[in-house]
Simulated assay, not measured.
Amino acid sequence: MRAGAPVRVDRTRAGAVVLVNPNTSTATTAMMTALARRALGPARPVRGVTVARGPEMLTDPEALRAAAPEVLAAGLRATAEGDCAALLVAAFGDPGLARLREAAAPAGIPVVGLGEAALLEAAAEGTPFGIATTTPLLADAIHARVTALGLADRYTGLRLTAGAPERLSADPVLLLDRLERAVRACAERDGARAVVIGGGPLGEAAEELRVRCAVRVVAPVPAACRAITRLLTE
């Protein structure tokens, strides 16, 4: 090594990324875990865990509030078991994120929220961004989250799909069609240059929309994985 050259310290932490699904759908946990494994690659194992109690979908503010302590409990169990390099809170509303981040800090375990990561990535370098999602009852919470992250000046607005979230989740073809319309409205009517798909359970649709839409679509699970990679290696 050349004398005086800076030494790069490898801060990579061994262990798995633990993906915590704040709803009780094990099928959704499996889907998001598969997306995270694809995003992180074979060098970083991913372990999916599902909260013990709560609804199968988080579609209103009360469900988000109720999920927060369940996320904290699941995250703490994961860290106690060992082999945990990072935690991913895998719901767009990031329930329990702040408390879990605080609890995991003494152990040096980073905690990333799916919504926070996707929004920050979409808005990077001042990019105007919108959000497309299926949950109208969470609109106010989404707007508040954007503001809390200091991104309101770049936010072009929220576009919601037509139809009940439960019905759309049961029909992947219809879900994709309605989400694509919402994404196109964000770009063509609102001027967004990036569109965040607002929901962990919408992860597979988000991947398809990245191919189908001309505007940059930010899929939340890969965005969270990129944030985790930066925290573990920078």
Rank of each mutant, 00 (worst) to 15 (best):
P6I: 10
A122L: 14
L231R: 15
G130M: 10
N23Y: 12
R47C: 08
A78K: 03
M1Q: 03
A192G: 01
R216L: 10
G191I: 12
C186D: 08
P61S: 07
L40W: 05
V71P: 10
S169I: 10
E121G: 02
M31R: 11
A206L: 10
A86C: 06
V173K: 11
Y155E: 02
A43E: 13
R178A: 14
A5R: 00
R2A: 01
D177V: 13
A30H: 00
A34S: 13
T79D: 00
P106R: 10
A206D: 03
I197C: 06
T26E: 14
V89G: 07
A214Q: 11
E166C: 03
D177M: 10
A162F: 06
L149W: 07
R154S: 13
L209M: 07
D60C: 14
T135C: 14
L76P: 01
A103E: 01
P6E: 03
V218K: 05
R53T: 11
L202S: 03
A205S: 15
V218N: 04
T26N: 07
I197R: 02
R53Y: 07
A162D: 05
A103D: 02
A67D: 02
A63D: 14
A66K: 14
F92Q: 00
R8W: 15
G130T: 02
P201N: 03
D171M: 13
T135L: 08
L88G: 07
P69K: 05
F92R: 04
C225H: 03
I109L: 07
P165F: 12
R193L: 15
A39H: 03
R77Q: 09
V173R: 15
A214T: 07
V18S: 06
T33S: 14
A205M: 12
P22V: 06
G113M: 06
A43H: 12
A170H: 15
A117C: 09
A3Q: 02
L137T: 04
V215R: 09
A182Q: 07
A91R: 13
V221H: 08
A34C: 03
P128T: 02
P55I: 15
D83H: 09
D83C: 08
A80G: 00
V46K: 12
D94C: 13
M1F: 05
A219S: 09
G96V: 11
R184C: 00
G93V: 11
E125I: 08
R230P: 02
R11F: 08
A16S: 12
I109Q: 02
V89S: 03
L72W: 10
A224I: 02
L40S: 00
A103V: 04
V217W: 04
A52K: 04
A52C: 11
P222H: 06
G48Q: 09
N23A: 12
T134I: 15
A162V: 12
A105Y: 08
A86Q: 08
G48N: 08
A103Y: 08
G191F: 14
R37F: 00
P201E: 06
A117E: 03
S169K: 13
A36H: 14
C186N: 09
P222A: 11
V51N: 04
R11T: 04
R178N: 04
G82E: 04
G130H: 12
P172G: 13
L76Y: 01
G198K: 10
L88R: 12
T28P: 01
V196I: 02
A144N: 06
P45E: 04
A86T: 03
G108K: 09
R11N: 01
R212A: 15
L120C: 14
E125G: 00
A192S: 15
H143L: 11
R212L: 15
